[in-house]
Design a protein around this nucleic acid. Structure first.
Length: 318
DNA sequence: ATGGTTTTTACTGCGTC
DNA sequence: GACGCGGTAAAAACCAT
């Protein structure tokens, strides 16, 4: 997907289940939570502010995102054999479904009711997996993250870790862990907000799952990922991204990054780059998008500038 | 629980447009 | 005067032990 990073100039309803340009099918990009159209190749991404106002659209989204004939998936209680099948008789592109397919769907529906969850355990599993899918959607996460989250939850359920734990808590924790494992940059804060939980509780559940299920160390998100994400969310000129990534690479492995919140560091790189490139985004805005304070941005900037000399190579402008 | 580190909060001062 | 920027002290949050 490298080099394909377009940004949504209109900033409106580009994120959906079908391509805003040609109506083609969108597939997720594991890197950034973007979606790419299989038909025309254009890239869309989630609206910058995942504020509460698009809760309303989540339900519609959910209804629209019916998966017909998709491959088996771990994020459904029965691996996807019992898809919730809409009654509209239309597929995800809005085309009507041909009779053969319709028959297949009917068969699936029949089998679905037969194999329906009978034990309470399985019912519980189904509920949580649905929650996971829902949370992933409201965070605009690619499918593979949902799958990973589902897998993590299955394991923790099997290990009885999830026993008598809050459903949203476990959901948020597994989704957050899945993000980290898949290298998708979503902060704990973002996950907590989407799950309507406070950060502290999600962190507690996260630790629990990490300790009991994952056991291995899951490295934090690289600064680069945050930079790309910031650029995408704030619809900043890609030139700035290039600059920020370059700076980030040059200064990697330096002491300045150890123990610091990657989001703050990324914000500092983006800010500095915006100045260097001549696009100049106020600290205030960068900080806001990175969900850190201006103070943090400033502190990171100072450390970067204290430790490195930035020599700008001016191109002859004619 | 604790102590060290980082981030946030709240406030102030400076220069510029 | 409003705005962007830089700084500071103290509180709060975080994290490893």
């Amino acid at each position: 997907m490298n080099g394909l990073t377009l940004w949504n100039a209109r900033g409106d309803d580009a994120f959906g289940t079908s391509c805003p340009v040609c109506g083609g099918r969108l597939v997720g990009d594991a890197e950034k939570g973007e979606q790419v159209c299989l038909n025309c190749g254009c890239v869309t991404f989630a609206p910058a502010d995942a504020g509460p106002e698009w809760k309303a659209m989540d339900l519609q989204e959910k209804a629209k995102r019916v998966r017909v004939g998709s491959p088996t998936t771990l994020s459904l209680q029965d691996m996807g054999l019992t898809t919730e099948i809409g009654r509209s008789g239309r597929d995800s592109r809005g085309n009507s479904i041909d009779p053969t397919m319709r028959a297949t769907i009917e068969k699936m529906r029949k089998w679905q009711s037969r194999s329906r969850t009978n034990s309470s355990e399985e019912r519980g599993l189904a509920i949580v997996l649905a929650k996971i899918t829902e949370l992933c959607q409201s965070l605009s996460l690619p499918d593979n993250v949902a799958e990973t989250a589902a897998q993590i939850y299955r394991i923790s359920a099997k290990m009885k870790v999830a026993k008598s734990k809050s459903i949203i808590g476990m959901t948020a924790a597994t989704v957050y862990l899945a993000c980290r494992k898949c290298g998708v940059s979503r902060t704990l804060k973002e996950v907590a907000r989407a799950a309507r939980m406070d950060k502290g509780s999600v962190a507690r559940y996260y630790r629990l799952v990490l300790k009991e299920v994952e056991k291995e160390y899951v490295p934090p998100q690289s600064v680069d990922k945050y930079i790309s994400k910031l650029i995408n969310m704030a619809k900043i000129n890609p030139k700035v991204e290039l600059m920020a990534l370059t700076l980030s690479r040059q200064t990697r492995d330096s002491k300045i990054s150890s123990g610091k919140a990657p989001a703050g560091l990324a914000a500092a790189y983006v800010y500095l780059s915006s100045v260097l490139v001549g696009e100049h985004i106020p600290q205030r805005e960068v900080a806001e998008f990175a969900e850190v304070t201006e103070v943090t941005v400033r502190n990171r900037c100072r450390e970067i500038l204290d430790n490195f000399v930035i020599r700008q190579v001016f191109e002859p402008s004619r």
